[in-house]
């Protein structure tokens, strides 16, 4: 096939039996037409997934460095290109599921640490963040406003029903 100039990239001309790095969506179009086979990413095999899983089990306070969209990638590859994977797909699938679950449990444990100022969540993928986003943002917003109202409330108490516009520092 001849090269194609796209909006976000240029695809070089493609010949048979050639290894090439292209965007995943593009590879999937070719794959669906049986025009190519996919080379799975280097983290998507039994060995590295097991390593990642071990890491998640051993390290209780941090997350393994998986690619930013590993869940999406693995789902697409399992769905459309499972015949290109060298390992047994069902084992990989269950490993990915295990990884997903143990990470979610760790996130939920980590949420105990939530306070009104901040929370650090390194190496969490976008999908996992979006999974907890509605809940966490709501709770932290509430904590923030609670924190504000208690601190201003205390100030007001000490001012003994003083005028709102008064200088707080002086009264303290």
């Amino acid at each position: 096939m001849n090269g194609i100039e796209l909006i976000t990239d240029n695809i070089p001309s493609i010949r048979a039996m050639q290894r090439l790095s292209v965007p995943l969506w593009f590879a999937l179009i070719l794959k669906r037409q049986n025009k190519c086979s996919l080379v799975p990413p280097d983290w998507l095999n039994l060995k590295s997934l097991q390593d990642f899983y071990q890491y998640e089990v051993n390290e209780l306070t941090s997350f393994a460095k998986l690619p930013n969209n590993w869940l999406e990638q693995s789902k697409l590859i399992f769905e459309y290109a499972s015949d290109d994977i060298n390992d047994e797909v069902y084992k990989l699938k269950s490993l990915v599921q295990d990884l997903k679950e143990i990470r979610m449990i760790k996130v939920q444990k980590g949420l105990q640490l939530i306070n009104e100022s901040h929370l650090q969540l390194d190496n969490l993928s976008l999908l996992e963040i979006n999974e907890i986003r509605p809940f966490v943002v709501e709770i932290m917003g509430k904590l923030t406003s609670l924190d504000k109202s208690t601190s201003t409330g205390m100030e007001q108490d000490e001012m003994q029903y003083g005028d709102n516009d008064g200088d707080i520092e002086d009264d303290l």
Binding site: Q120, D122, M140, T144
Partner: peptide, 8 residues
């Protein structure tokens, strides 16, 4: 750098 935070 590289870290993810939840912060106001």
């Amino acid at each position: 750098p590289g870290s993810i935070y939840l912060i106001r």
